[in-house]
Design a protein around this nucleic acid. Structure first.
Lengths: 160, 160
DNA sequence: GCTCTAATGCAACACGGTTGCGAGAGCGCG
DNA sequence: CGCGCTCTCGCAACCGTGTTGCATTAGAGC
């Protein structure tokens, strides 16, 4: 685990260095935390995990996350609880994708939304730029037709 | 305009009365404001429009909106700016709600998503229960193509 | 009108997020 | 290696949204 942490730390440092800006301990550590996380983190989660759990100033965490976002090293997503979550930027999820979230087991998968994107009627004069689409329902494993179904453990949280 | 306001007021009073609960001035006025609005309103917008612009206690607005939502007379939308928006519930909004949000002025309107809802391909065995769909872009008033366009009033987007 | 109770208004709080500013650290340069 | 410029950090104070507790007010049945 220490080795993995070290590896994330090194990767983070390399990434920060590539921007040409100052390589500070805070930037490297926050990015390392994001790289190590498999799901999006709130600023609080980042704050508590950073620096080996020793924490860091709230405002610095905010500003570092803002800086990472501005440099496209992290993504900011808005959850249903109106709290921002961040994850390390990843080319695969950069642009358009829709999600399916199972209401029972919590599984999140990606959908092709290109079909839907084309068929949404907008009022005249309106211009579409991005589309956010989440379908909620039951996944194949949770559809109640089959008896004896139950909620699987440790639902892999999807990273944006 | 006064006539329209009166009409919304009367409709609101009728709707509130039908619930069997107390018909208070605050409930009627808040609902009338929602009925008169063509887009979803933040609690602040409701607060400033209610009572002929004279305002009303913040907490009361929150509680009335909560009450309206609980009685299915209004609909609550979670925006990405951490602000709830409300609109009067009519049959069209009861179940399937898609939204368009202007990236410039912040206006939120409702869309018919029935077409889109049917065209989203799910993996076999998956069952759709709800769909959350938000299209973002520019509304007719904010599309920069036409010269002399400017941001409409009344949707002053709060930038934190 | 009278009364009972739900609803309002006020104050104070909780919490996410932001801003101002002095102190400290990164990094280029001699 | 040390100097110094400037960017960044950390602290404190702030802002806005949303919530809670409690005394007062006002619907609505009688």
């Amino acid at each position: 685990m220490a080795a993995m942490t070290q590896s994330f730390h090194d990767r983070a440092e390399t990434i920060v260095r590539r921007t040409g800006a100052r390589v500070t301990r805070q930037r490297v550590e926050v990015l390392a935390v994001l790289l190590a996380a498999r799901s999006a983190l709130t600023h609080r989660e980042v704050e508590s995990r950073v620096n080996g759990g020793a924490g860091m100033d709230r405002v610095t965490v905010y500003r570092v996350l803002e800086w990472l976002t501005a440099h496209s090293l992290a993504h900011r997503i808005a959850g249903e609880d109106r709290v921002w979550r961040f994850n390390a930027a990843d080319e695969a999820h950069a642009q358009r994708h829709a999600h399916f979230k199972c209401n029972d087991c919590g599984e999140v998968i990606c959908l092709d939304k290109s079909a839907a994107a084309r068929s949404i009627p907008l009022p005249s004069g309106y211009r579409s730029q991005e589309i956010e689409l989440t379908v909620k329902g039951l996944c194949a494993g949770c559809v109640p037709t089959r008896a004896g179904r139950h909620r699987p453990q440790g639902h892999a949280q999807h990273r944006h």
